[in-house]
Nucleic acid binder design. Sequence first.
DNA 1: GATAGCAGATAGTGCTACTATCTGTTAATA
DNA 2: TATTAACAGATAGTAGCACTATCTGCTATC
Lengths: 224, 224
Amino acid sequence: MRISELSRRSGVTVPTIKYYLREGLLPPGEPTGRNQAAYGEQHLERLRLIRALREIGGIGVAAAREVLRTLDEPPVDAHALMAPAHRAVIPPSTGDPDDPVWTDARAWVGSWVAGLGWHVDPDAPALDRLADVVVTARRLGYTDLLERLPRYATAALMVAEQEVVTATGRRDPAAVMAAVVVGTVLGEALLSAIRLLAHEHVSATRSQDPADLGIVHVSGDQTT
Amino acid sequence: MRISELSRRSGVTVPTIKYYLREGLLPPGEPTGRNQAAYGEQHLERLRLIRALREIGGIGVAAAREVLRTLDEPPVDAHALMAPAHRAVIPPSTGDPDDPVWTDARAWVGSWVAGLGWHVDPDAPALDRLADVVVTARRLGYTDLLERLPRYATAALMVAEQEVVTATGRRDPAAVMAAVVVGTVLGEALLSAIRLLAHEHVSATRSQDPADLGIVHVSGDQTT
DNA sequence: GATAGCAGATAGTGCTACTATCTGTTAATA
DNA sequence: TATTAACAGATAGTAGCACTATCTGCTATC
């Protein structure tokens, strides 16, 4: 297919497709002449993946390129594949490695995770991110958040278990890789959205008189 | 204190503080002369909160202003306070309301949440976001993600329960409001980071020979 | 009395993710 | 076959965001 059809079927404008080609997110089409190229279904698939990473994952173009590059070259194992996806999803740490407040929190996080018995790369970016959160929570006086860490761990383990199993359960290695990346990004968005809905639900349920709040059951009558 | 001290103690540069003042994120200091003003501890607190929303929550300046505005004017109930925090945290929906693919997914999401027995505002932005994820998952052929929805719901409910209880358990209404906002943002980052660590752990644990992966227990010996 | 710091205003910067235009072909079609 | 539309590839331009810099007239302080 030509670029206009690719654009139509993907919903991505032609200039944007050209931009992705320039940036190396999308491989060039098969040249069929001096200034013509043919694109296949894999280009369409790739474009859909790019949009998912960008729109659902909130991942930047540069980070998406890294993730896609990893998908294109066969990684040794699931971890080698996981790392770029994690790096892409986690915002860069704001912690100052020279600040003892941060390094203390970082060390505490490391030992806490170790205490869970979890097997984790000690340089995992998620540990830095966790340290950022811990520092911020302390700074704002929300230390009770830290006491609830075990429950977060249990909940996280619960979804991660499923995610890893279904991803690695695929036959084709390429499909496993894609499932890990996609699962990381979609799972994050999914869990985040459902958590907010749960907030509403719990808050409404615990209120003395939920009717006062103007909140109504999704399947119930509408308020006007 | 003067602006230079506020800057020093908060770690935010003077030009940036002035920018936040201009943008209405930070209330002006108490004027002590024609061109002097005094800032208090509440300004320092506010700055810390702004940085937390920006750096941990990934919230934009405009969205942060809305959240802070809500904190400043006494809201009627927890829901009225929750809404701006949720809006700030959730990326705008990419769904096209004229696209039947999206509207179908949106309707399906609504009835699914209703089926859980959750009391949720039918216009909650999280439902739109959930629909975005569902559409993307189907588009990419990851429909098994949807089968795992109940587990995400259970995990989300588990953390949300705790979060709402500890937030609303505070005496001071202002403290409850702040705890809801801060808890929403910090809890999201926390759960997200721990989920990635859990991925690593589960993946390492399920491998035939974890030692091959170069992954080592945090408290264990280092690989060189 | 000199110097540094201040408030408030205006303008400029760097980055990201596109978006537009231009040039020289090439395919499609009337 | 003439014409029109679409194409690849290159270069330049744009919009939004979050600051950052500079300027002016004043004020605290040493």
